[in-house]
Design a protein around this nucleic acid. Structure first.
Length: 263
DNA sequence: ATGGTCGGTGGCCGA
């Protein structure tokens, strides 16, 4: 089974690229983030025509997560227990979607950006990751043998080598010790980053800002991850980042991350 | 040349 995650930065702006990549790469399950649309605006029929089922969770033009699968799509769940909200009044955002695909519990996650270390959005980000850690712990406790994967845009660069130059990130989000600790806390519940051991850095990135010629200059960040529970970790055969997809006109600012599983 | 972008939206915000 081939599993992937991709922040597409608008599914409507990226539809041709996403569907052609999906088919070309023989993907079974794709977790999407930043679809930037409401459910009724998601082009579901384009995916169904290709033999995929779709589950989408979008509440506005912001955020939006989806799971696309050709190996089944069951028990959909929008948001996770304890997930904090944003805004005034606080309300849940479309940042988490769970489903079971081919016997694997899959979560498509879009962690809040944080914006600035002193911005209230940063506190929201840390609370969100803290609630996710608690949910992750309970998922493993409830079904220790259930294959489970947390896929998405984590908006955290966990190690110094996950950005091209740490000096550039002094005082910014994504690399702070608080964010890194919050990411590590999810791992500490029993999840494993199954891509890094197969694709060690430095210089392995999944995101390059559109601005300042970051991609042609090789100045990216590793912020998209596939975290697998113990049962699934043992089944991972290979992993890759398709940086080809960041090239050319009409690319998302993120590249897809792909993981191959033994059956 | 010391900058350089996108996307959704509606007359700026978010990344």
């Amino acid at each position: 089974m081939r599993l992937a995650t991709w922040n597409v930065n608008s599914i409507r702006a990226r539809l041709d690229r996403v569907t052609s990549w999906l088919v070309r790469n023989d993907i079974d399950v794709l977790a999407l983030q930043e679809t930037k649309c409401r459910d009724a605006q998601f082009p579901t029929e384009v995916f169904t025509a290709l033999g995929y089922e779709v589950l989408h969770h979008g509440l506005s033009q912001w955020n939006g997560v989806a799971i696309v699968s050709r190996v089944g799509l069951l028990a959909g769940e929008t948001g996770f227990p304890g997930m904090p909200g944003w805004g005034d009044p606080r309300a849940p955002e479309a940042r988490a979607l769970g489903a079971t695909c081919g016997g694997v519990r899959v979560w498509s996650l879009y962690v809040p950006n944080g914006r600035d270390l002193t911005d209230p959005h940063m506190e929201y980000k840390l609370q969100w990751l803290g609630a996710l850690r608690d949910a992750a712990r309970s998922w493993l406790a409830e079904g220790p043998d259930t294959p489970i994967a947390l896929l998405g845009d984590w908006n955290v660069a966990p190690q110094d080598e996950d950005v091209w130059d740490m000096a550039e990130f002094e005082g910014t989000t994504h690399v702070s010790s608080q964010e890194r600790q919050a990411f590590q806390a999810v791992l500490d519940t029993g999840f494993h980053d199954v891509v890094r051991p197969r694709l060690p850095g430095p210089g392995v990135y999944t995101y390059w800002d559109y601005q300042k010629l970051r991609f042609p200059r090789g100045q990216g960040m590793r912020i998209d991850f596939v975290l697998a529970g113990p049962a699934l970790t043992a089944r991972v055969r290979s992993a890759s980042v398709d940086r080809q997809e960041r090239k050319g006109k009409g690319a998302s600012d993120h590249a897809p991350v792909v993981v191959d599983l033994d059956d």
